[in-house]
Structures are given as C-alpha cells and as structure tokens.
C-alpha cells in the first residue's frame, strides 16, 4: 500500500491530538503571568525555578523515585522466576498462577489502595512507605511478567539443554545463556515498571500520610490549592524526563515493541 494524502491528514491530526497538549504545557510553563493562560503572558523562567524551590515537591519526587526503582526491582525479582516457571515448566494450575500475578492490572487501582489502607495499614499499623512499596510492587508485577514472558517465549529453550549437556548446572544455564538473551526484555520491563509506578495515582491515593506523598498526588493537591503555572512547569519537566528515558530505551533495545 502507498501512503496517500488522506493518510497524512489523519496522522497529522492524530499527532496533534496526542502530542499537542504536551507543547501547550511547555509553553504555559514559561509564562510570565501568575495564572494559567494560553497563549502565555510574556516569557520567564520563574515557574520552572519555582518547581525546584517547593520543598514538598522535592520530598515527593524523592519518594516517587525511590518507590519506582525499589518496587520495580522487587517486581522483577518476583516476576522473572514466575515467568520462567510458566514458560519452561509444565505446571498444573499454570493459568491460575498467571491470573493471580496478573490480577493487579485488572482490579481498579483505587480499590487496591483502599483495600490495602483498610486491611493492611490500619489493622497492622503498617508503615505508609512500606505499604506504598508493597502496593507498587504488586502493581508492577503484571507488567514485569508480561514483558519477561514475551522475551522468554521468543527464546528457544534448547539452548539451556545445550548448556547443561556441556557441563553447566541448571541454575548456571539460566545465568549463562538465558539471562544474557532476555536482557532487552528485562530492561524494557524495568522501564515500563518504573514509569507505571512513578506515574501511579489511584493506588497511592489513600496511601498518604504526614510528609509521605508521591509526586503525582502532591501535584494534584497543589493544583487544588494554587492556580499558578508551576504545575505546568513540573509537568513539562516530568514529560521531558519520560521522553528522555523512552528515547534512550528505543535507541538501545527498541523499546516500543515491548509495550
């Protein structure tokens, strides 16, 4: 098929709708005015600078970063073995196991957050940060399993047998020939998990405490109190961070084919 004029028109509108709002935020964040407006009133860096001076933003950014990294790492520690078991062993109840580890993606996040608050945090006096860590790990687990499973399916299992016949132990074979060949998938799962956790709102909504707030929740709270462009500036900065991560990931592992 050859691309024709209507195709280009459709694609132009699609890109405008999907990416356009992002340019609007960027423009709004350089406004000199004190309320949100477009086209922006004048040009200044003051809102971008303000983002870095709001203390709660610093704390919540640090918490979100920490959570995203630690929870994704934990999800991979749990998710890689279960993916491996599901793809390489003939297990009874395999589908049940897959449904259980994938269920956090199907149950609405706000329900998860509320359930954890009421039945883990309140009765057991669990630390809020710990509960956030557990919730985010559960949330990232389905993504980790999905992406890692897909890479394992694409890798022939006879190379493990070949390694064993050449004298390697089974565990040794996993680290010597499986892991190096699913590196791309694991990295993609990490990025996808990181982004999912970092941007997560509904699960974290109820899991906040004094001084413990993730960045997106903090932004929502700030927006309710103040109508200035600093949230636009922060949004733009976060968007740039995501674009940077995705761009690098795309360069090295062809990220979009894993999504």
């Amino acid at each position: 098929m050859k691309a024709r004029l209507p195709s280009y028109a459709v694609l132009t509108l699609l890109v405008l709708f999907l990416v356009g709002p992002f340019f609007v935020i960027v423009a709004a964040s350089f406004s000199a005015g004190s309320t949100l407006a477009f086209p922006p009133q004048g040009f200044s860096f003051k809102w971008v600078e303000k983002v870095f001076t709001v203390e709660s933003f610093q704390a919540s950014f640090a918490l979100s970063m920490f959570l995203a990294i630690v929870a994704t790492f934990a999800a991979l520690v749990l998710g890689v073995p279960v993916s491996y078991a599901l793809s390489r062993y003939r297990l009874p109840l395999a589908e049940t196991v897959r449904t259980i580890v994938s269920s956090p993606i199907i149950v609405p996040g706000i329900v998860v957050g509320l359930a954890l608050l009421r039945y883990l945090v309140v009765p057991f006096g669990m630390d809020i940060t710990l509960s956030l860590f557990l919730a985010h790990t559960a949330l990232v687990l389905p993504y980790a399993v999905r992406v890692v499973s897909a890479s394992l399916e694409n890798l022939r299992s006879d190379i493990e047998e070949a390694a064993v016949l050449l004298g390697s132990s089974r565990i040794g074979a996993f680290f010597r020939v499986v892991l190096p060949n699913i590196r791309g998938g694991i990295l993609a799962a990490f990025i996808l998990g990181f982004v999912t956790s970092f941007n997560q709102v509904p699960v974290s909504l109820f899991l906040t405490g004094p001084g413990v707030r993730t960045l997106p929740i903090d932004m929502l709270g700030y927006m309710e109190r103040t109508y200035d462009p600093s949230v636009a500036a922060l949004s733009a900065l976060l968007a740039f961070m995501s674009i940077g991560i995705v761009f690098i990931a795309e360069r090295f592992i062809g990220f979009s084919r894993y999504v």
Binding site: I159, E161, A162, S169, N181
Partner: peptide, 30 residues
C-alpha cells in the same frame, strides 16, 4: 546421572547455538 555429568554430546536439530556468544565463545563454553 545428571545430563551435565554424563559426557554425552548432542547436536540439536535447530543447532541451539548461544545467540549472545561468538562462534569462538560457543565452542569454548563447555
């Protein structure tokens, strides 16, 4: 006896070469 201790070689139908290793490293593996 485990497959890794039997000293039996196997040439797979699909070759089963380690895709991340060079020819030299494949042969050197065992």
């Amino acid at each position: 006896l485990g497959a890794n201790k039997r000293q039996v070689g196997l040439v797979f139908q699909s070759y089963a070469l380690f895709p991340h290793l060079s020819v030299y490293e494949n042969v050197a593996f065992g």
